[in-house]
Nucleic acid binder design. Structure first.
Lengths: 339, 339
DNA sequence: TTGTAAGCGTTATCAC
DNA sequence: GTGATAACGCTTACAA
């Protein structure tokens, strides 16, 4: 009742297991007589033979598997990326192992260790911080990696990300066109390259639109979360700074603003316009529907998987980085400033 | 530069690999001299030995891995369930392989095949249909399984689900208490046991609340989706049926109603109350915030993992099924009927 | 308590 | 073109 092995196939086909192996593997099939190959394939078919990937892995020290390191699957940003990755990997004969790190470096290390011990052939990492000694070490060990949404100081790795500069520029230009001049930025954590990039892009965009560069109008959030967004907006409001619009570091931070509006009896967009970033699901059903910068999540996954496959194919290949263009989705959370 | 193996550890500790193996494995450690064990552990530590799970799997035909079969990770229902599962499996020394089936039976079969060939020790299946020949076959092959949210006709398997009856009863009672008497149900697909169970629970709850049992007020959706929900509501409205409130089969279907309200110039909850089911993320930020039946997703995952671990421990154990209590989250999409 | 040896299922490297 | 053999790294009877 145990699953048929290569020996069973060989026996049935009347050949040596080695021959059966060669016949079964498309790579090596040309090495065997066409008739023999046919015989073997028929035998395999007839008893429902399925190669044992574990035995194969042990022998070849390859696994047809890549690791996918994300902070938290529960963040709606990641599922579409994961699907994009899988949709590229699956036809290429690879599978993805997903692990969550909860942004805990210790957990990240054990998770990656566990992936490595399972012989994953590469890693797609969406947890990169600018300083990331673990990734530096892994790269020195020759681990193939692709980064999503982040870069790491001091190493060159293929990466794929949305073009934050363009996204933020779209947001600021939209607000400027509506007539806003005092625009605040609720920045993401400055330990993340994304947080830094968007904050810098914001400064540049403000200057480009002739709206000055007032550091008092940028506040940093400790996390990419609603509560931190709310917190940051409260600080900014309490500081007495005057502004009529907010460019949030991401959608969660933007949604945090909604809570503060409710607390303080403000209405959006009449008292304050808000723009998010990422285009999470269901933003169109929010109150008010959130204007946001849409990122092509699924395509990010697709590109990341392609980059990794390239690297696996040719480890010497020079690291490419892909930047994907975002687009602005205008909804009801932005409007001209109140007269 | 290649990873240290058991031989390396043994050599360093001056013992035979078999002894090293015994010392390293907590299960067999008592078999070796305490001093020897200490020596081996130190040696392992010093060279950073990590056992090779692939070799171990090949030998033991176990993998410390379970398969997680879900329709689509992109559905916000699943990530919290996945996290619950992982949070139980990880401390127990197991890992989860996630596969998406897109509700495509063919894809499901190949995915499960691939999990099986990787020697997963059990399956947690969230894609069950009432008729599910594949699962019946697997069970006959002795595959250990736990079902999430569904049952399968003709086999007894451990399962975990939210108590749909109670949830629907809460929803109907809430609307009845607000004064609604003509309540419609936008039912989920009747090929799913969930769709059937909720529809039946709706009929019972209506009768229990003395609100009759008008089949014209229940419409089936082909999928658990916004567009199908919208479609169903349009059909119901166009039929001329009179009703002031909707109990939707799930949140997505309920959100579909919002689109129809916008199309037809109706306002919610003034013209129509709506209740969802599942408590997806960010429902509190919708327009209007959606009243819904909250399901303990994370706990469903936790219980499912526990049931599977039980089954792995003792395959003979009689299948238990766990029913988790939902709760009603009242928000602004429900109000007394107008006038 | 420890060592010996076989074997999990496959593939790579030789011969022939 | 095919067969024999060894090996991947580990566990486990069995023997000592």
């Amino acid at each position: 009742m145990t699953a048929p092995t290569l020996r069973d196939v060989a026996q049935l086909a009347g050949v040596h297991p080695a021959t059966a192996s060669r016949a079964l593997n498309p790579q090596t099939r040309p090495l065997v007589n066409a008739d023999t190959a046919r015989k073997v394939l028929k035998a395999a078919e007839s008893i429902g033979y399925q190669p044992n990937p574990i035995a194969r892995s042990l022998k070849t020290s390859r696994s047809s598997t890549v690791g996918l390191v994300i902070p938290d699957l529960t963040n709606p940003l990641f599922p579409p990326i994961v699907r994009g990755i899988e949709d590229v990997l699956t036809p290429a004969g690879y599978n993805a192992w997903i692990v969550n790190t909860d942004n805990d470096p210790g957990r990240e290390e054990t998770q990656i260790e566990s992936l490595r011990s399972r012989q994953v052939e590469g890693l797609i990492v969406a947890t990169a911080r600018r300083e990331h000694p673990l990734l530096v070490r892994l790269q020195q060990h020759g681990v193939r990696m692709v980064l999503i949404n982040r870069r790491v100081d001091g190493i060159e790795l293929p990466s794929v990300a949305a073009d934050d500069d363009t996204g933020i520029a779209l947001a600021v230009a939209h607000l400027a066109a509506l007539g806003h001049t005092r625009i605040a930025h609720l920045a993401g954590p400055q330990q993340t390259s994304t947080g830094v990039a968007r904050a810098r892009a914001f400064r540049h965009a403000m200057i480009d639109n002739g709206l000055g560069d007032d550091p008092a109008l940028t506040v940093e959030c400790g996390y990419w979360s609603e509560s931190e967004g709310a917190q940051a907006l409260r600080r900014l409001l309490d500081s007495g700074a005057k502004f009529t619009a907010v460019v949030a570091g991401n959608d969660l931070i933007a949604l945090g603003c909604y809570d503060v509006f409710a607390e303080r009896g403000m209405t959006c967009p009449d008292d304050m316009s808000v723009i998010g970033f990422n285009e999470m699901p269901f933003l169109d059903k929010m109150r008010p529907p959130l204007t946001t910068v849409a990122i092509p999540h699924y395509e990010i996954g697709v590109e990341a998987a392609r980059l990794l496959l390239d690297t696996l194919d040719d480890p010497e290949r020079h690291p490419r980085s892909v930047l994907l263009a975002p687009s602005l989705v205008v909804r009801a959370s932005t409007a001209p400033p109140r007269g």
